[in-house]
Write a protein that binds this DNA or RNA. Structure first.
Length: 414
RNA sequence: CGGAGCGUAGUAUAGUGGUAGUACGCGGGCUUCGGGAGUCCGUAGUCCGAGUUCGAUUCUCGGCGCUCCGACCA
């Protein structure tokens, strides 16, 4: 992609009014635009980042046997009424216009247990149909009283929600662990260091549930955790405090704020009971299906990554989500030889399958380099009179600059 | 929803009860060309409504919007 053709542009000015780091940087760099509080457009570069996050999530979901589908955003009142969730105050509600002569009311989907459970009644009727799991990646809508922190708390946001169905508790428990491991892998691949934190079950379950908290000052949650082992509890339910001994390993308990990027719940039969989702067991007896629900927020992850990885010059994307692998900068000036050579490098890298963002604009060197740091792609390759036949290669996260050949660039960034 | 702050060109910021200024951007000219270049010309603006006033972008009230603190929050 040529920056000269890119739909978005970087700005020299910081956006007014934004305080959250992720909002300031993502808007300044042209990754996103706010359309209203908590509601964002993802511009071409931002959409690429978001899709890379989605792709990682898809791979890990598929690898644990979950199947992707897509459920509706408009969910009729009847669904929510069956589980007494029509009256929740975070639901956006809407209906058809008077002229339609239909009075159906809808809630914009803020979660999909009702819809998925109803769907499951069409296909699950025997123990032989179990276990099974489906997921979707879809915009969710929540009428948050106060949207804030850029991508970290929106009214419309992207979520991957997975639902699993089981014949017995042991199977549910096992799959719950399997999903936790899959989520850990996703977060590792995103270079995010998250704690698996015990949390309150809320309306869903009396059991504790688990949240994945990225420890970061910008987070809204308070987490007590052990610095030696995996023990961690949300402050809401914590039975430990700062300086206490870890009940698991004897280490020291610390406190941090955390960004909740994912959560997992054992739903039991709450939804299967409401929608009469049953199966016939081997012995012919009829039993309620056990369910689990597991969410992870790609758009919130994107904001979290910016909070975690930035410096005074801009964003520093982990390689796994960098919108393009290489930011190729041509500092040709009026030197046609250099300009031609940069064009050739761009074309060749592009042909060999390397994702390149090529700064072919006729602007000053300083402007280009500043933009490269702001955008934060993993690799920066500079071609200029100074570099001769070679290319300057630098990682955004590191100070070292190497002079390498074209072949080495293609190899290094693969 | 309670509290605080803020709404001025496309963006970011000044300022004034009486002709609204600067920077960036954008269009054009010349000079530049390794850390957001210089210069010249051009371009474009007071959130909406009501009130006070001879006159309101400025003062008052209301609305709408945005940010932050709190409450809320799968």
């Amino acid at each position: 992609m040529r920056i000269s053709k890119l739909f978005s542009k970087t700005s020299k000015n910081w956006p007014a009014g934004e305080e959250a780091t992720n909002a300031k940087l993502l808007i300044k760099a042209g990754y996103i635009r706010k359309s209203s509080a908590g509601v964002y457009s993802y511009l071409p570069l931002g959409w690429r980042v978001l899709n890379k996050i989605n792709d990682i999530i898809r791979e890990e979901m598929n690898s644990i046997g979950a199947q992707e589908l897509l459920m509706p955003t408009l969910v009729a009142k009847d669904y929510w009424a069956k589980t007494d969730r029509w009256e929740v105050d975070i639901a956006f509600k809407t209906k058809l216009p008077e002229t339609s002569h239909q009075s159906t009311e809808f809630g914009l989907g803020w979660t999909h247990e009702e819809v998925v459970t109803d769907l499951a009644t069409d296909f699950i009727s025997s123990y032989q149909d179990l276990p099974t799991a489906v997921y979707q990646i879809q915009n969710k809508f929540r009428a948050e009283a106060r949207a804030k922190n850029g991508l970290l708390r929106g009214r419309e946001f992207l979520m991957k929600d997975l639902y699993s169905f089981h014949a017995n508790k042991e199977d549910l428990d096992n799959y719950y662990q399997t999903v936790i491991e899959a989520y850990k892998k996703i977060l590792q691949r995103l270079d995010l260091n998250a704690k698996v934190v015990e949390a309150a079950g809320g309306a869903f379950t009396k059991e504790y549930t688990h949240e994945f908290q990225v420890l970061d000052p910008s987070g809204e949650d308070d987490v007590f955790y052990c610095d030696k082992c995996d023990f961690a509890q949300n402050k809401e339910i914590a039975k430990v405090g700062i300086g206490d001994k870890c009940p698991a390993c004897g280490g020291e308990i610390k406190e941090s704020s955390g960004i909740e990027v994912a959560n997992v719940f054992k739903l039991g039969t709450r939804f299967s009971d409401a929608f009469n989702l049953k199966f016939k067991d081997k012995d012919g007896s009829e039993q309620a299906v056990l369910m689990g629900s597991y969410g992870i927020g790609p758009s919130r992850l994107m904001g979290t990554l910016v909070e975690a990885y930035n410096d005074e010059r801009g964003i520093i994307w982990p390689e796994s989500v960098s919108p393009y692998k290489v930011h190729l900068v041509s500092l040709a000036g009026d030197n046609n030889m250099v300009a031609k050579s940069a064009e050739k490098i761009y074309t060749n890298l592009d042909k060999s399958g390397v994702e390149v963002l090529f700064d072919d604009r006729d602007i000053s060197a300083g402007h280009k380099l500043a933009d490269a740091d702001l955008l934060g792609l993993t690799w920066r390759a500079v071609v200029s009179e100074k570099t001769g036949n070679k290319i300057e290669l630098k990682q955004r996260s590191k100070p070292e600059i190497k002079l390498v050949s074209y072949e080495e660039v293609a190899k290094l960034v693969k």
